[in-house]
Amino acid sequence: MPQDSLMNTYNRLSVAFEHGEGSWLFDTDGNKYLDALSGIAVCGLGHSHPAVTHAICDQASKLIHTSNLYTIPRQQELAKRLTQVSGMESVFFCNSGAEANEAAIKLARRYGHQVLNIENPSIIVMDNAFHGRTMATLSATGNRGAQAGFEPLVSGFVRAPFDDVEAVRNIAENNPNIVAVMVEPIQGESGIRIPADDYLNQLRDICNERNLLLILDEVQSGNGRSGKYFAYQHNNILPDVVTTAKGLGNGMPIGACLAQGKAAGILVPGSHGSTYGGNPLACAAALAVVDTIIEEKLCDRAASLSERILAGFRQELKDAPYISDIRGKGLLLAIELNEAGAELAVLAKVKGILLNVTGGGKVIRMLPPLTMTDSEADLLVNTVSRLIKVYAADEPVTQ
């Protein structure tokens, strides 16, 4: 299909999908693919989930958009549900993860001015982080490839190595402009980087000691994917701010910035807003997603699927010299290679598996739906393991 009218912003694989069902996508030629990427952690309930489909169709037949100038009952329902499942107090709705992180950054700066009386507030962010592609979130992102050509970047960010508590502590103690620490509980784009078990707890302690905000970017790790509704719940802590998107709408664009405690009342009328954020259609879809995750115990399902898949890969690929690491938390899964293998995403598509390769081309990233069956999980393990073995042996991959 010609794409000459599109800006050349994506390196797309040569496939177009016509419909999906559960963990499967079907292309325009009738071929089927096991979707182990979920639209990059978006379709956590799989494709064409009946609860989401019904919610969208029912709401679209009634009302799609009014404005945040008026009360939106669906938005209030969704906010209540999210505060209940998260332990947070209030929610701002927007349309994407980048917008949710933008809201968090603005909230932190306003907190610095109003509460800490700091003229030039700065936020500690991490090496190799990914927070979005708006100018502020791009500046917070720790990826020079994504930033190149868009300078000057937004100031007010100080970078620390990921999973290095002492580096954060040192910056916080020596830079009087620090107002917040912003971090992904599990780094996604850089290759499913999982920190030490007590990393978030120690960051929470530092923020408590210095009256800083702890901002957790759970755009990718939230909504059941880590084996808890939010990844920070593995640590029994509460952030001051948490952002999420992706899996919240199962494909319907929606993002959320949640706050509690000293952060909950920082944004007030006139300080921030969104034309489409929290519209009735997006909120109806998200309500169906949240209710399904809770009612069907899909957080627990993500945890059990993780154990099955990781055990399978470790068995199939044990002692393989070309494998650096096999890791995961919930359904954030990674196989790290010793050498770059970016073409494995193309080769996997040939074998009917959708995944991607990130982390400098060395990390096979898999983000399968929380609704994946055991047999589909086994198919993923067996097919990807065989593919990696063939690739490492430099043999041709056949259909």
Rank of each mutant, 00 (worst) to 15 (best):
L214F: 14
I186Y: 09
E184L: 09
R204D: 07
F157I: 02
Y199S: 00
I178E: 01
P195L: 09
A136T: 04
N177C: 05
I215M: 04
Q147P: 02
A148S: 08
N201I: 11
T141N: 00
V125P: 03
G188N: 13
R144A: 09
A136G: 01
L203A: 11
L213E: 05
P176W: 01
A148P: 02
Q202N: 14
E119Y: 13
V125L: 10
N117V: 08
R133V: 03
V165W: 05
N175S: 01
N174D: 02
E166H: 15
I186C: 14
A136C: 01
Q202C: 10
A140N: 01
E189T: 12
R133I: 10
A146W: 08
D198A: 14
N120I: 03
N201T: 10
G188S: 13
Q187W: 11
G132V: 06
P121G: 11
R169M: 07
A148V: 07
V181Y: 05
G156P: 03
R133A: 03
N177R: 01
D205N: 13
N143L: 15
G132H: 04
C207Q: 04
F162Y: 15
N117H: 10
D163W: 08
F162I: 11
V183W: 09
G132M: 05
R133P: 02
E119V: 04
R204I: 13
E173A: 08
A172C: 14
N120R: 12
D205C: 15
I192T: 01
A136P: 00
E173V: 12
F157G: 01
N211D: 07
I186T: 13
N211L: 11
L214Q: 13
I194H: 06
E184R: 07
